[in-house]
Write a protein that binds this DNA or RNA. Structure first.
Lengths: 140, 140
DNA sequence: CTTGGTGCAAATGATTTGCAAGCCT
DNA sequence: AGGCTTGCAAATCATTTGCACCAAG
């Protein structure tokens, strides 16, 4: 999952295709977010990105996440009481579950939940823009 | 839906049964929240409650919501970008949808969504504690 | 060049908290 | 009486923004 090239052209291209300017900061942030398998907060992302590129500021991480979210490249996970977390927009849709004991974020594979939501919303005359669902659960 | 008695003993009792102290502030806040059919934010709640009892402070509304949530008497709806909203814990379960145009909060009747979540979570070895699901959607 | 991006620090907005006084049980 | 609650104001936390400078296209 880890690319050999730091800041490889793949990420730059992804940005360019979305019609966004490619800055070194954006490339670094996307690199870090892409190669991480947990769901980092802005603060996490900031710290990790800094090890790769120390010109990045927190403000830029916030701004970048916002831009990427609007471009549909990343998904924001709104938490109940903790700062938001982010993931690259998944190709295989899934939902999330927070382990209330550990705080871990577990991915729920499968697309059933959002399909059902879409169906139910359309019965009310709506089309889903996004659904920010976080399930709090405890190990059995 | 609107009770004749302001601050009726029904709400005081509801608090007492939950093992909570009954203060005039709590009674007022619960009265307002119970008799409202939208999903007020703390600020909304504070303003409305003030018309009934001007000794209430915002801090107390926050503290009361927190206490009531822990007692399982109210449900907190975590929004994406706006302050949290609250509703009395519904007997008939339902989910929520935010109209991204108007900001309106629409209730999605039915229990299918949370049933599916529960089923899917249990496949991962979890039992749901709570799920705060808010769907952002746009009118068709 | 020109527009948009960035760092820094200050500003904002929501929610929390320390403290002294007051009320519920 | 004694501990939980409250109001007030100050504090915290996450996120946003103004501004002067810099860089991508």
């Amino acid at each position: 999952m880890v690319s050999a090239l730091k800041n490889g052209p793949d990420y730059r291209q992804m940005l360019r295709e979305a019609g966004l300017r490619v800055t070194p900061q954006r490339a670094s942030i996307v690199t870090i977010l892409s190669e991480t398998d947990d769901h980092p907060s802005v603060e996490d992302l900031y710290e990790k990105t800094r090890t790769l590129d120390d010109t990045v500021s927190v403000a830029t991480v916030y701004r970048t996440m916002s831009v990427l979210e609007n471009a549909g490249l990343v998904r924001k996970l709104v938490m109940d009481d903790a700062p938001a977390r982010y993931e690259m927009m998944p190709q295989t849709d899934h939902d999330h579950l927070v382990d209330v004991e550990s705080g871990d974020l577990v991915e729920i594979p499968g697309t059933e939940i959002s399909e059902l939501m879409g169906r139910v919303a359309s019965e009310l005359g709506y089309r889903i823009v996004s659904h920010h669902t976080v399930i709090r659960a405890r190990k059995v």
